[in-house]
Amino acid sequence: MTTRPRLKLGSHLLPGLAAVALFTVMAAVFLQGNFPAPAGFGEGSVLRSIGMAMFALEPSIPSANFLVAFEIIDVVLVAALVGAVMLARREGNDSSGSVRTDGGRGDDR
């Protein structure tokens, strides 16, 4: 028999009040603001427009050129993958040149 999960309430929820306070402040600010009428995106598929806008292929679409950012985010993703793999690698006894990340405890796990 297992028991159903219960919502854990207690004093550890107290810091959450800071989040609630932040929400009230932001809500108070936003609800008072008045924006002009929103402009739409014109006719046609928005997705297509996004693709054209990303590489500035169609000058009539108002956007910035994100070509350089596209390339860089590619590099960032590769770096993230490599980093994640490196962090997750289990240190072996015979692995040469590996960085020991065990916080100096010195024993193998």
Binding site: F35, P38, A39, G40, F41, G42, V46, S49, I50, A53, M54, I61, P62, S63, A64, F66, A69, F70, I73
Partner: peptide
């Protein structure tokens, strides 16, 4: 992005 009609907001959110 919808407010101003400029698509860079949406592209940026992809990144």
């Amino acid at each position: 992005s919808a407010q101003h009609g400029n698509l860079s907001g949406q592209v940026f959110s992809l990144f």
